[in-house]
């Protein structure tokens, strides 16, 4: 029984050790600003089209699906409110994070995994560089900066998607009513929650990707396994954490 529990407990401990060292390195020299901006470009600019597209259709689908129910209750004018609240609180952060996890947790894990199996990480340590400082911390910082920005963009484009369905297409409400109800519906609580979530998800995605990448063993097959695990584990954690953060804000 204990032998069965040992590997996951050990992995959990190693993950937190890695996380601790990655965070501590944020305040320690040397800082690899080039790597940070490179990663921001890869994660942020690289994910922008797909995140924007998903955001757009999320808003559009939400307006579309809500239209019947809202019409039934004569509440079609509140469509802007529903789209904005669900996008900002939940759909924007979770869907963007899932896309970025699929795209970048896998990318990070496979890149670091290949470096591990070709002894580049050992070479880095042998040549005077801390791999956590050089590889993990820049990815962590870059992800924490760009994911909240991506979510803000996705939220806004999602509202445009909702507007296009609600106003020109289904004529549920007027443009002024849509945008004013969308705007008025948002409270500080929603915005805080909508920005805290991507920040937490960014930490999870980058560290899980790095963690599985850095502990890759067993050649190219190991790299494939690390990539899959990074995506699955980070996606599951996104769902678990969004529930707990949501719970925290509901009780506030």
């Amino acid at each position: 029984m204990l032998d069965f529990l040992k590997p996951p407990v050990l992995a959990f401990q190693e993950f937190f050790l890695l996380a601790g060292r990655a965070f501590r390195n944020i305040f320690r020299k040397p800082h690899y600003f080039d790597d940070i901006s490179l990663q921001m470009d890869l994660i942020g600019v690289g994910s922008l089209p797909i995140v924007a597209l998903t955001g757009f259709f999320t808003g559009a689908i939400m307006a579309l699906q809500m239209s019947r129910a809202l019409n039934q209750y004569g509440a079609a004018s509140t469509v802007g409110q529903i789209v904005s609240i669900s996008l900002v609180r939940e759909m924007g952060p979770v869907l963007s994070a899932l896309l970025v996890a699929g795209r970048n947790a896998s990318g990070i894990a496979s890149e670091l995994g290949s470096m591990k199996v070709t002894e580049q990480i050992d070479a880095m340590r042998a040549l005077g560089t801390d791999p956590i400082q050089k590889l993990v911390t820049p990815r962590l910082i870059a992800m924490c900066i760009v994911l909240p920005l991506l979510v803000v963009i996705a939220d806004f484009i999602g509202m445009i998607g909702g507007y296009l369905v609600a106003c020109p297409l289904l004529k549920l409400t007027t443009a002024t009513q849509y945008w004013s109800s969308a705007w008025r519906a948002l409270e500080y609580n929603d915005i805080a929650q909508g920005l805290l979530k991507p920040f937490v998800f960014a930490v999870v995605i980058s560290l899980v990707g790095c963690f599985y990448g850095i502990r890759t063993t067993g050649g190219t097959q190991g790299v494939g396994l690390a990539t899959t695990r990074a995506v699955v584990v980070s996606s599951v954690w996104i769902f678990v954490l969004t529930f707990f953060i949501g719970k925290l804000f509901v009780s506030l």
Partner: peptide, 16 residues
Amino acid sequence: LRAKVGILFQEGGLFD
């Protein structure tokens, strides 16, 4: 200390 040691790794260990 490692600065006083040169290492050639089996796979070369070059950064791609």
